[in-house]
Amino acid sequence: MEGALMATEERSAKSDHADSSTGMLELRDIVKRFEKPGQGEILVLDEVDLDVEAGAFVSLLGPSGCGKTTLMNVISGLIEPDRGTMRRGGRDVSPDDLSLGYIFQEPRLLNWKTVRGNIEFALEARDVPEGEWDGRIDRYLDMVNLGDEHDNYPTRLSGGMKQRVSIARALAIEPEIMLMDEPFSSLDEITARDLREELLDIWKREEKTIVFVTHDINEAVFLSDYIYMMNTDGEMFARREVDIDRPRQYDDPDIAKREAELYREFHEHVVD
């Protein structure tokens, strides 16, 4: 159990490209307990530390129900932690100070609004001046290859297309950091692969920072700069780099090798 705390031996290499004006987002000692009916209090996040370097693709990897989503919701402000600090560029920050976009596991679209209407909903909610709406809607729908679907209703789109709309909606508010909670887990593998590659393109081109929650080791290795690993006790037990050149290929033996290494480590910590 002593190795179950933050492992730091592999960090350092990438921290130099963190810009000090935006800076690295640092979460420290985040604790969150939930009251569960019949089970008493459950510790979901146990003194979790997390570094999100500016411009990085960071994954949170862990089995189902290990508190990954809770951690995302702490960053986004949807959940108040019981303890812990969030700092950026050396100053304490609250979720309101951060520029965030959120892509949920389900698309969470308003089915009664058109694709355009769904993006307008987010723009209105974020008080984006109306003059900018059309430009942003066109730009981000094109970016997710839905340029022809402005006036279609989500109920008439496939699962993959709905998730694209949800990505365009998050991009449209032009956030620095995109929070993504298992966004491809309910899609078929072929659609998911297409979307992962497109996501990496957008991430590079738009210089976003992405925090990506997944339980899929292969997905985490393919996408990430570095990976945080969580267990079901709410502990973040390791941070591991993925030093594989981009653009990456699915069938790259380096990916398979890294995946196997991480799997072994995971197995030791998660399964007793």
Binding site: L78, Y102, F104, R108, L110, F121, A125, D127
Partner: peptide
């Protein structure tokens, strides 16, 4: 409740949430 959470995340006010999320 998922849609309510989405609306909350994007910062929709009471009126916008009622009109665009609840009433439909």
């Amino acid at each position: 409740t998922d849609l309510a959470e989405m609306a909350e995340f994007f910062g929709a006010g009471r009126i916008q949430t009622f009109k665009d999320v609840v009433v439909p």
